[in-house]
Simulated assay, not measured.
Amino acid sequence: MTAALRVVVADDHVPFRDRVRDALVDAGIDVVGEAGDAGDAHALTIASAPDAVLLDVHMPGGGIRAARRIAAEAPDVAVVMLTQSDDDDDLFDSIRAGAAGYVLKNVDPAALPGALRRAIAGEAAMTPRLVARVLDEFRNPRQRLFARGSAAAARLSAREWDVMTMLADGRSTDEVAAALFLSPTTVRVHVSSVLKKLQVKDRESAFALLRQAPARRAG
Score class of each variant (00 low, 15 high):
Asp11Arg: 07
Ser150Tyr: 02
Glu137Pro: 01
Thr186Leu: 10
Glu73Phe: 00
Val31Asn: 11
Gly219Ser: 13
Pro109Leu: 09
Gly63Arg: 08
Ser205Glu: 15
Ala10Lys: 08
Ala110Gln: 11
Ala177Pro: 04
Met59Ala: 09
Gly101Thr: 07
Val189Asn: 09
Val57Thr: 10
Ala78Trp: 03
His58Val: 15
Leu167Tyr: 01
Pro109Arg: 15
Phe181Thr: 13
Val53Arg: 07
Gly114Glu: 04
Val32Gly: 10
Val187Ala: 00
Ala38Thr: 07
Glu160Tyr: 00
Phe92Thr: 11
Leu112Ile: 15
Val32Asp: 12
Gly114Cys: 03
Ala177Tyr: 00
Thr127Arg: 11
Leu209Ile: 11
Ala132Ser: 13
Leu130Phe: 03
Ala110Met: 02
Gly61Met: 08
Gln84Phe: 06
Ser193Trp: 00
Ala206Asn: 08
Arg133Pro: 03
Val163Glu: 05
Gly114Leu: 01
Leu104Ile: 14
Phe16Tyr: 14
Asp26Gln: 14
Asp90Met: 07
Ala3Leu: 04
Lys201Cys: 06
Asp88Asn: 11
Ile46Gly: 04
Asp76Arg: 13
Ile70Cys: 01
Trp161Lys: 09
Ala179Gln: 11
Arg19Thr: 13
Asp169Trp: 01
Ala4Asp: 06
Val80Gly: 10
Gly36Tyr: 06
Asp87Asn: 15
Leu130Glu: 05
Asp40Gln: 13
Ala168Thr: 08
Val77Lys: 01
Met59Ser: 13
